[in-house]
Structures are given as C-alpha cells and as structure tokens.
C-alpha cells in the first residue's frame, strides 16, 4: 500500500519556523478558511465544493424501500465515502485507510447522530414504505481539510436535494415523477458544519483549515462540529499532544463564528441556484407545499 509522501525535513523545519514567526505558507491569517467555492449540478442534490485545492463532490439520491423492521417510523439515511485514487496516491479503492474511516465516522456523528435530517419525514407508510436517502461523498482532490469540505458539501447537497412528491390514499402510494409534480425539499432540522483546528508548537499556534502540508506537521487536531445556533454536535480530539482545556473552549467559540459565516455563504449560493431554476417565476405556484 503506497503511503502519502512525507514532507522533507527541510520543508518541515521551514513550515514550523514560519509558523513561529506568525506566517502561514499560503499567507493566510491563522484563523481563516481558504476560499470556499460551492457549485450545484444540473440535477437536484449534487454539490461540488472546492476548498483551496481540495475538491469534493457529493451526490444525494433517494429511492423507495421498506424501512428497517426495528425502525418502522423512520426513513433510511446513509452516508458513504469514497476516496478516489486520483486525489492522492495513498488512496486505494475498496481499502478504506484510516482517514476515510475517520471522515465517515465524523460525518456520521455530525449529521446522522445529531439528526440534522429528520428521518421521520421520510416515512411513507409506517413499516412498509419509506424513502432511503443516500449521500455519496467523492473526494476528487486532496489538499487537507477533507472533513470540513465534505461537511460543507454534504449539508449543501442535502439542502439542495428534492425528493419526489408522494400521496398516500389508504394503502396506495403514488410517487410523482419530477415532471408531474414539483419535488419536495428534505426536512433539515439544523445544519451542522465542521471546523478543524490544528495545533503546533505545543499548543502555541492554532490554525484553522490546515492544508495537507500543515496537516502532516501538526501535533494534534480538534474537529468541532457546530450549528449556527451554538449547539455542539460533535467534538473529536483523538489524541496527539496534550492541549489546555481552555483552548478547547476558545475553539468552540471561534468555530461558531466560522460556522455562521459558512452557513451564510451556503445559503447565498442556494438562493442563487433557486433563482436560476425559477426561470418563469412559476416556482412559488408549483411548490408542493401549496394546498391542492
């Protein structure tokens, strides 16, 4: 199994020395994200996020299946991750490496366990039919910050996705195609976003959104997932060098600001996209939320 190319000693020294002098290699301030660029596809539920050189595409899709027998009133929601070998030579198809396991676990905890998507709203007939929503995360280019970028892409894609409208009459379910009826957005309860903090020089330097090079040199990382209401959905510090408890608290408060700014950006992009789709101004009339 090939490994990620390690930084040479010189590069390592240079990066650390620069950080000691309060300079990042790409000239960013310590507490800013790289440029986030979010694009939506032609179809509903496709989001393409570029965070610096990192690029992630998420595709959300759904179909109708039977719910799990122990969860009759819930729909099904699954997140799968795939690291494409074109992103990095260290990624192999079909053999999840450690970072893939961590990414999928973090997203699982951040989005699924915090019940960002209301799975009960995916139920059609209790115990018999429900929607199974599936989000596929594809990492196309890897330059650090995978968790943050994947989370942005996933939330944007879920918010962008529309499921087909259904009507239930007794035991009969009619699923309307996109042509017949305007599809329905998913019921999102809140919008968690991840912010990764990287620690250097035994906690003296804290970076937001580290690049791959910085990730390879860092001493420890803290991944904080919050929504814009100030609720923490997940914190993960798996190990690494010891840090002050107080610094964890400052992480959460600065994460809140980042999350609010990111969500505002996603919202803007979603509005932009909605406007583009609403060609004749008919959307309001067609909306499935109107009374029939």
């Amino acid at each position: 199994m090939p490994r990620e190319a390690e930084l040479s000693l010189n590069e390592r020294e240079f990066l650390l020395q620069a950080l000691r002098e309060n300079v990042r290699l790409d000239g960013r301030p310590f507490d800013t994200f790289r440029n986030v660029e979010l694009k939506f596809g032609e179809e509903y539920g496709v989001a393409d996020v570029q965070l610096g050189k990192t690029r992630i595409v998420v595709r959300v899709s759904c179909d109708v299946t039977a719910p799990y027998p122990d969860r009759k009133f819930d729909g099904i929601f699954n997140i799968t991750t795939e690291f494409s070998p074109m992103a990095s030579p260290a990624f192999e198809v079909g053999r999840p490496n450690e970072s893939e396991v961590i990414l999928s676990r973090i997203l699982e905890k951040a989005i699924r366990r915090s019940s960002a998507l209301d799975t009960e709203s995916l139920c059609i007939i209790a115990g018999q039919k429900c929607f199974a929503v599936r989000a596929d995360i594809h990492v196309l280019d890897h330059d650090g910050g995978l968790v943050d970028a994947a989370c942005i892409a996933l939330i944007a894609a879920l918010q962008h996705f529309r499921r087909p409208d259904v009507t239930v009459e007794g035991e009969n379910v009619t699923v309307y195609s996109l042509r017949e009826r305007e599809p329905v957005p998913l019921a999102m309860l809140h919008h968690p976003l991840c912010v990764t903090f990287s620690y250097f020089h035994s906690g003296e330097v804290v970076l937001v959104d580290a690049t791959l090079a910085e990730e390879q040199v860092r001493e420890s990382e803290v991944i904080v997932t919050m929504n814009r209401h100030g609720e923490i959905c997940q914190i993960a510090k798996y190990g690494g060098s010891p840090i002050d408890a107080v610094s964890l608290l400052t992480c959460t408060s600065s994460a809140l600001g980042k999350v609010q700014a990111l969500w505002k950006y996603i919202q803007e992009k979603l509005d932009e996209d909605a406007k583009k789709r609403d060609a004749g101004g008919l959307m309001a009339e067609l909306s499935a939320e109107n009374a029939r």
């Binding site: 366990r113 915090s114 019940s115 510090k237 002050d244 408890a245």
Partner: peptide, 21 residues
C-alpha cells in the same frame, strides 16, 4: 489539566461544555 483525548458524540449547547470538561 492538559487534555489528550476529548470525544463528544451527542448534541449539546456550547455553554455546557465548560462545566462538563
């Protein structure tokens, strides 16, 4: 008082974190 591991998996408000820690 240095934290090596901190894992939280459930949703809770940020104001609770301090006392929990």
């Amino acid at each position: 008082d240095k934290v090596v591991v901190c894992v939280m998996e459930t949703r809770c408000h940020a104001s609770r974190l301090e006392e929990m820690l």
